[in-house]
């Protein structure tokens, strides 16, 4: 079971390159490298690679969690903000809340090499809520848009929702599982990895779809 979990973990790491590859292959435009979407997929991939380096040399990946929470969280909110037509103000509020909670968590509850559990959970809740809001924004959209772009946006937002809601749930039970119910650890971890795989699949499909004419 542990081997299966380990291979699944590497598989998910490898799959994390797929959205970046699809973005580089299909997305075109003058602001190619400066879009939140490109930054999100590239930073996500770089952080996953770097986490291995931290694991080997420092036996501690919390710094990666810190960078991931603030950078990827902020980028996800910026992406959602760009997709939203009516709720941009709520997205701004979400971004403000994320930064505030992260700073409080960083300075009061722990440093760079400590677990940022609170800000991570806050990010998951904020992004999940924003995702649901933007999904309904897209469903109720009245402007004329290119259908493929609309579908692409929907799948990207859906990927954020699936990833953040599952991470939120996993974060809630992770401590209990690790300390008291180790028998359930691999099952829950594999389920989590499966949902992460779904996240990358939806994200890749969304990026590919939105690049179609």
């Amino acid at each position: 079971m542990s081997n299966l979990a380990l291979y699944s973990y590497y598989l998910v790491q490898a799959i994390s390159f797929l959205p970046l590859f699809i973005y580089l292959k299909w997305q075109k435009g003058c602001n190619f490298f400066f879009t939140p979407l490109f930054l999100y997929v590239s930073i996500n991939f770089i952080l996953i690679l770097t986490s291995n380096f931290f694991e080997i040399f420092y036996k501690n990946t919390f710094p990666i969690f810190h960078i991931s929470t603030i950078s990827l969280g902020a980028l996800m909110i910026l992406i959602l903000r760009s997709f939203s037509s009516k709720n941009k103000a709520y997205c701004n509020l979400g971004l403000f809340l994320l930064i505030t909670i992260y700073l409080i968590d960083f300075f009061i509850f722990g440093g760079f090499w400590e677990n940022n559990y609170i800000s991570n959970i806050a990010m998951n809740i904020i992004v999940s809520a924003m995702s649901v809001m933007v999904i309904f924004d897209l469903i109720n959209l009245e402007d004329d848009v290119i259908p493929n772009q609309l579908e692409g946006k929907f799948f990207i937002v859906m990927s954020f929702f699936v990833y953040n809601s599952s991470t939120f749930f996993f974060s809630l039970i992770e401590h209990k599982i690790r300390t008291e119910l180790s028998s359930l650890f691999y099952v829950s971890y594999l389920s989590y990895l499966f949902l992460e795989l779904v996240h990358y699949a939806l994200l890749s499909f969304g990026i590919w779809k939105s690049a179609q004419k």
């Binding site: 999904i135 897209l138 469903i139 959209l141 004329d144 259908p147 929907f154 929702f161």
Partner: peptide, 24 residues
């Protein structure tokens, strides 16, 4: 709950996307 909400959102979006495609 996650599965049902995702399916529900897919169903809602599908009808919207179909409508948008026809309009487009």
């Amino acid at each position: 709950a996650l599965g049902m909400s995702v399916i529900q959102m897919f169903i809602l979006f599908r009808s919207k996307a179909t409508l948008m495609r026809i309009k487009f």
